[in-house]
Design a protein around this nucleic acid. Structure first.
Lengths: 196, 196
DNA sequence: CCCGTTGGTTTTCGCTTGATCAACAAGCGC
DNA sequence: GCGCTTGTTGATCAAGCGAAAACCAACGGG
């Protein structure tokens, strides 16, 4: 009946707690109680405070784990490779991007953080805009036969695809399990709109 | 120094509390403390429980106030009026729809509720889909020169415009203050995509 | 002008929260 | 197998939570 008291190397225990914390806070929200998290991680609540000085610090570590190094710089090179048709490039970018962010942890923690007023979202989206969406807009402008889009048009395309993840992970509505078809159709329609 | 104890007719007080509650829970989240709400409403915390039996009941009343009768059946008639060009009809629908939902209360409570797992979102979006978006899809299919869209295409258009509100009210990022231009461009592009 | 109805406040309860700390025991070096 | 380091626990605290109960006073009818 007494739970065996297993002793783990600190590195390993820390990672186990962070894994549990990411899934837990994604599900329950950023101010879900640390006691419930501890139960889920299979440790006592007090132990969390050996690895993290405060709940805020633990959350910061979760943010880092979920959002850092999730954007692959290689996507930018592929996006800029004008040997490849523009439609294939944009499609490939959004297939890679949605594959990276369409997880409960990414989508739900992002939304919880946004509502809570964390700066995470603004910083992240400004970076995404500058590092990927503006280059994407430039490639569209440079593509033969396309009118140059405004950044707001690109955000519109972006939102149309991210919304698929919102329906799936936030509202838990049924959505196509494979995002590739919706992506292909949305990108094709977007480009057709820039040609007309 | 002592706050004047003002006596209001119950109907009026109830409405004042609901007004404050909608703004308060939109800002702070559905499990923000009732004491803070009371302070904001200018009453004591205990008084809330004279007008609502529990916090859950108060939240239910807020949902009703924010989401009930917000969708105007007249939109459907306008959407189905084939004397008007399809582009004007879709544009007008989304101008009316975004005017109805682009408020902090609507957008933020909807997102808090979705994350909290409330049934509100599923019920609302299923109703919206059946009552407005499916007819919209039918009108697109019936419009001359357009390929019939899948429902998923319509949700894509829908999301591209709702995402504008998410950026503004959830992430608090700068967005065009007037939604009409983005709507016009998104709808025009969408239709062009269905023509190609 | 007084009095009863009832809107409003003060006080309190039982419970949960983030965080702390002394006590305990698992595992490695010897 | 011994003992020390240190990962882990149970007990505890002050603050904050939703809710209830007792008390107070504003207003209209007589």
């Amino acid at each position: 009946m007494t739970p065996p008291r297993r002793r783990l190397p600190p590195e390993e225990r820390r990672r186990a707690i962070l894994d549990a914390a990411a899934a837990f806070f994604a599900e329950e929200g950023l101010d879900a109680p640390t006691r419930d998290l501890a139960r889920r991680a299979g440790v006592t609540q007090a132990l969390l405070y050996r690895y993290f000085p405060s709940k805020a610090a633990l959350l910061e570590a979760v943010f880092e784990r979920v959002y850092l190094n999730r954007l692959d710089p290689a996507w930018l090179d592929a996006l800029r490779d004008r040997a490849v048709p523009i439609e294939a490039r944009v499609t490939a970018f959004y297939e890679a991007y949605t594959a990276a962010i369409f997880t409960p942890e990414w989508m739900r923690i992002f939304m919880w953080a946004g509502l809570a007023g964390e700066e995470l979202n603004r910083r992240y989206l400004e970076h995404l805009g500058a590092a990927f969406l503006r280059p994407l807009a430039e490639e569209l402008a440079a593509a033969p036969g396309l009118r140059a889009p405004e950044m707001e048009d690109v955000w519109n395309l972006h939102g149309s695809l991210v919304y698929l993840g919102i329906r799936r992970f936030i509202y838990r509505l049924p959505t196509p399990q494979d995002a590739r078809r919706p992506i292909a159709r949305a990108v094709a329609r977007f480009l057709a709109g820039l040609r007309a």
